[in-house]
Design a protein around this nucleic acid. Structure first.
Length: 585
RNA sequence: CGGGGUGUAGCGCAGCCUGGUAGCGCACCGCGUUUGGGACGCGGUGGUCGGCGGUUCAAAUCCGCCCACCCCGACCA
């Protein structure tokens, strides 16, 4: 490609609203342009890189038996009504009607379509296992897109779907993906960790997320360096030490003026926060038969901990969970800041599993300026549900080995789910076993967003001058810079390099050397070749790698071979990273 | 949805407070000089000042409503 005619120019300054490095650099280098909130065009160079990322995905998924197909981006709503997700998913799914007034949806994911195809195509256990995948646009109307390509509303995703006769078969395919995903991310040059995760709207029994660790991430992970436990904070377990036994004290109401927060309360009464109970009001949307109801949740954790909303939502099987409004709290006679589960009616009381074994806590009295001392579970009140609803924080004890865990921010670049039979049962996607008995097909689903992955690679591989692409996904292999005296020979070299199968970006513009070198650094192709009066005088072509400051001069007749050799070397380095990762649940 | 912020040329910004000719840098076009790390001179092109309404002789500027985008939170694969 000649740069003089490339669609998408470089910018000296990034748009003011780009904050993360990947966002700024991808815009400045001409890889992406924004169309709307969370909606981006991929310019030719960005598209080339995405294409290469998708090549890596195809290679790895094909290697574990994947068959690529194509499923539509617009679905009749009937399918989604059959599985129930039409009703379960909120505004994140965009809906519309066709000219006949039929409900339609923009695809957020493709479990429904796969299960629908499966019920038509699969009849016998002899056809299983099966693995299908596609790379297709998804639309998810995220309330808050951010950080360039890291979190968008329209994106393309490689999503694969496994079909098996039983759980054992699913386990095999799930484990195959577990490794294939590591290969994909490493093949694109980014380090990831796999963590246990919430299953969210997908449902199912087990899920792992692949996290690229970066401060620009928005998920928080808990990591144990000692035993290797890793989990998203949304579901991370931690060891809670049982408090020392105490004789239950007398329930006593005391004045605690202006102590509406745990901090103030603990200071005022001169007790540790761990001797207090913290209350939080949420409203959950629950399914009750066919209908949906809203229920006020009164959640209690110990004062030194935080309520984990994902755990809470899972504990009460909530479809949605939001913070309660003041009037909803007042309606059950509770007082924020002085709230108590004692004598409360009309709320679903959920307490953390540490509460029943923590004696003599301080709790609100449902009266402004008053708390109870020596509140004891069982004696003074009981809950509708006891569950682990506390959030694991930095330093929390590892649930496996008890060592303190650390936290890290990360971006979810991939997610794999054991779905089981949720969709196949709903849609009647069954097969016959050897004895002629009918069973629902067992499904798994596995997704990677290609644009987000591109954003993460840019986040991982850059310096203050620009991007530094891994050889496997660089939009071109070689950045060929012609300075004036070298133009004709550069033009000839351009042809030879391409004939040798190398992909070349040829800076043929009438620009000063400074502009050309700076653009080359900004775009970040792995190999830079410069043909100039100086290089010719020194015997040929200047050879430089983007990732290193070293320069050397290669003879004109050797440079094609040398570039091809170095490219292969860099690809081999990446391949060497594709090693087996121990599977952990 | 709650809090904060920004909308003026392709990008970055000034002008708004105190109403009166729409500006600067970069980019872009022409001519000339220059050519190994974002050159220089001269001359140019390009703007419904986010939108609608109001106040006024007069609105980028004051007032109201709306929209878009960004950040934090809620939410989310």
């Amino acid at each position: 490609m000649k740069m003089s005619h490339m669609f998408g120019t470089t910018l000296r300054q990034a748009p003011a609203d780009a904050e993360t490095a990947s966002h700024q650099l991808l815009v400045r280098a001409g890889f992406i342009r924004q169309l709307g909130a969370g909606i981006y065009s991929l310019m030719p160079m960005g598209w080339r890189s995405v294409d290469k990322i998708e090549d890596v995905m195809r290679r790895e998924i094909n290697a574990i038996g994947g068959q690529e197909l194509y499923m539509p981006v617009i679905h009749p709503a009937d399918l989604w009504k059959e599985t129930g997700r039409w009703f379960q998913i909120g505004d994140e799914m965009s809906r519309f009607q066709d000219r006949k007034g039929h409900d339609m949806v923009l695809a957020m994911t493709h479990e429904e379509v796969v299960a629908d195809l499966a019920r038509r195509e699969i009849q016998s256990y002899k056809q299983l296992p099966m693995l299908v995948y596609h790379i297709q646009t998804k639309w998810r109307d995220d309330p808050r897109p951010r950080a360039g390509l890291i979190r968008v509303r329209e994106f393309t995703m490689k999503d694969s779907y496994s079909l098996d006769a039983d759980e054992a078969g699913l386990d095999v395919q799930y484990r195959a993906h577990f490794q294939a995903y590591f290969n994909i991310f490493r093949g694109c040059g980014i380090p990831v960790v796999a963590v246990r995760s919430d299953v969210g709207m997908m449902g199912g029994s087990l899920a792992h997320e692949y996290m690229y660790l970066t401060g620009a991430g928005e998920d928080t992970l808990l990591l144990c360096d000692k035993c290797g436990y890793r989990a998203n904070r949304q579901i991370a377990l931690f060891r809670k030490d049982k408090p020392a036994d105490e004789q239950p004290g007398k329930l006593e109401k005391v004045a605690t003026p202006n102590a509406a927060t745990i901090e103030d309360l603990a200071n005022f009464l001169k007790v540790p926060k761990s001797k207090t109970a913290k209350a939080l009001f949420m409203v959950a949307t629950l399914a009750e038969g066919e209908k949906e109801i809203e229920k006020l949740i009164f959640a209690v954790v110990r004062g030194d901990m935080e309520v984990n909303e994902t755990k809470l939502a899972n504990a009460v099987k909530a479809k949605e969970l939001r913070t309660a409004r003041a009037e909803e709290i007042a309606a059950i006679g509770a007082v924020p800041g002085y709230a108590s589960p004692i004598g409360l009616k009309g709320a679903l009381v959920v307490v953390d599993d540490l509460i029943p074994i923590s004696p003599n806590l301080v709790s609100g009295a449902n009266e402004i300026g008053y708390h109870y001392l020596n509140v004891n579970y069982e004696r003074d009140y009981t809950a509708d549900l006891v569950a682990d609803i506390a959030s694991a924080e930095e330093g929390a004890a590892c649930p496996r080995c008890g060592s303190p865990m650390r936290t890290s921010r990360g971006v979810e670049v991939g997610h794999i789910f054991k779905l089981g039979t949720r969709y196949t049962t709903a849609l009647g996607a069954n097969y016959l076993d050897e004895s002629g008995k009918e069973h629902p097909i067992v499904m798994g689903s596995y997704g990677i967003g290609s644009g987000r992955l591109l954003g993460c690679v840019a986040e991982e591989h850059h310096d203050d001058k620009g991007l530094i692409w891994p050889a496997s996904i660089a939009p071109y292999d070689v950045h060929l810079v012609a300075l004036r005296a070298g133009y004709e020979q550069a033009e000839a070299l351009y042809g030879q390099l391409r004939q040798a199968g190398l992909e070349v970006l040829f800076d043929d513009r009438d620009e000063s050397p400074g502009v050309k070198f700076n653009d080359a650094d900004l775009i970040g192709l792995p190999i830079r070749l410069t043909v100039s009066e100086r290089s010719l005088k020194e015997g040929g072509v200047e050879f430089k790698l983007r990732r290193s400051p070293d320069r050397s001069v290669t003879k004109m007749e050797d440079v094609v071979k040398e570039a091809a050799r170095v490219k292969q070397l860099m690809l081999d380095e990446i391949s060497a990273q594709l090693v087996a990762v121990p599977y952990e649940e």
